[in-house]
Design a protein around this nucleic acid. Sequence first.
DNA 1: TTACTAAGACTTTTT
DNA 2: GTCTTAGTAA
Length: 761
Amino acid sequence: MAQGSLLRGLNPEQLAAVTLPARPALILAGAGSGKTRVLTTRIAWLISNGMVSPAGVMAVTFTNKAAKEMLTRLAAMLPLPVRGMWVGTFHGLCNRFLRAHWKLSGLPQGFQILDSADQLSAVKRVIKAMNLDEERYVPKQVTWFIAGQKEDGLRPKDVEVRDELTRVMVQVYQAYEEQCQREGVVDFAELMLRTYELMRDNAALREHYQHRFRHILVDEFQDTNKLQYAWLKMFAGPQAAIFAVGDDDQSIYAFRGAQVGNMAAFEREFRVEQVIKLERNYRSYGNILDSANELIAHNRKRLGKNLRTEAGAGEPVRVYEATSDFAEAQWFVEEAQQLHRDGTPRHEIALLYRSNAQSRVLESALFNAGIPYKVYGGLRFFERAEVKHALAYLRLIENANDDTSFLRVVNFPTRGIGARTVEQLQDAARASGRSLAQSAGALSGKGGANVQAFVNLIDAMRDATRGLTLREIIEHMLHACGLVDFYKTDKEGKDRLENLEELVNAAEAFVTQEGFGRDAVALPVDEQGAAQQAPDAETGEIMSPLAAFLTHASLEAGDNQAQAGQDAIQLMTVHSAKGLEFDAVFITGLEEGLFPHENSLADHDGLEEERRLMYVAITRARQRLYLSFSQTRLLHGQTRYNVKSRFLDELPERCLKWITPRTQGFGSGFAREYQQAWQRGSGLGGIVGAGRVQPRAASITPRAAPSHGLRMGQSVFHTKFGEGVIVTLEGSGEDARAQVNFGRHGMKWLALSVAKLTPVN
DNA sequence: TTACTAAGACTTTTT
DNA sequence: GTCTTAGTAA
């Protein structure tokens, strides 16, 4: 076997990790340390050494992208087909498992998966049906509650009820579960929980899988939640070797249930003998890494790790202070243009921000400058309204009792079925405990006839598409249901028609794709004839291509990239930048309240997570890193005066280079010298970074100066609260008050006759 | 049933 | 500022 070539080029730590004995192992893999390479090489090494068969390996990731990447790399390293291997996302593997054991898990064979939007509308229906006040029981929050309970492994009966609100939400949870069961659908959390429960409660099945998977490898372990950890333990059994790779410093999903603590718990519970740290970074230059290291050192809860490189210091980290968010965007555009002229491809320039709301100014600046850019996030292909409509019709063809889909399109395009009629239909359905489609006959009058016509339409589509290929089914549906005609006449329907066209293409690609419907096909329990231990594994039985495609659509919402192909600047939130890397990275909006976000400042853990987020952002950069903040920012239609982010103060001064032009408040030549003198002289100590405080620009016109001599937007210094920015000024003379944003000390109202505010600059 | 207006929200997100 | 949602008038 090409042993040597497999392991060639690994550094000693990587080599040690790849060739660890078959025991539980924890790999602390820093950003850019070759984590995916270690993971895939380990699998390839185990298999090519005969230590495990491909069927004995399970590799879990969080995103489809990571799973695909892993499969691609494995395919290149192994001389065997990798598609049968259990490599996938948590949810993808659960889907595979439940498709194989649908009967045991109490699901219909063709069960469908609700995405978050479907789930929300399902919860809304339950709340309506229970006649609850949506003000008090906010659907979004209830949905969140249900997902949260499931992720803690709790069914309605298990939830501890302490107050009225919880009591009612548990009732909704209960009713929601019954509704899902009736309609034959499962949400994302349900995929995990059902799999877990079936493994827990069925000894034969559990023993089978525990015996089968000798090696379980987990990517991004720091992102696992309680249920996922329990799930892993369930599959691992006593002799399995779990190989967990993670980075506690990159844990940025605590807000959605991820428990970094799982890393420590794993080390303890599985008696990990030796934690291997991958600290050598192959991505960034020294100044960037030093900045990241120094920043993250401010966090208390860490397993401890320091990135190092042999690449040299590289460029300094450039810092820019803008007068307004508009000016910041303008500066970015110019800087990016320059980078591009100097040879950096646009797609190697990333523009990162903390929250999506920040992208607008940046986008419009790019747009006006005519620079191609791509925004990540936002609607993905299968989430577009017209695509969801089409999918709803397809689901109804597959399963007429899917009430979520029924409600979505019963009157789209409009066919004279109003809210009133739908309500009557829902009442009838509830009374008889049947689905909406089954209750159509119960209605009388014009509305009833229209509903009946709709049900007939669906039935007709089902009959007409029987035996057709997936492509033909979709094409027939699109015309028969009237969607095409509707969008043809709609003046903004052109793009939508194109998307529907694209849906046909997606289906075509899905069918022809190698390993078609791999996840959706009910596989035999395993290749070694263990089917007898799993009575309901319908050996080899294949679900319809349509059902498989629908599953694929919910499990993999598709790309959300805009126009592909063009060389464009990449815009995204810091969260979505995780796992990516770029030659040049701009982190914008480094202001208190924005980054760190104000909603996270309440507790210490929140702040530490923000800092990890900043750490992730910094470590995306290979060669150049730019940090910027702005004195004023238009947010929610209001001008806010922000203090620069504390994270800037936590970076090593020696790695930074302030590039703000000082021509705004002073005469130019003097200003530059003045500024450079400050930069040379002052470290982080002293008076709240006063050395680097910029002269405020004249962008905020001072009004007729009141006696106190302060103005809105002015930076001031307070002996107790430190540096702040005046947000509001009220009253005059004795009564004069100022509202000051002190960043980490919060917003304060101060009486100017009492408080000593010294103007800064 | 539809079309318009007003009110309120608004961190981060994959599956 | 902009998007979604709820309520009301035609």
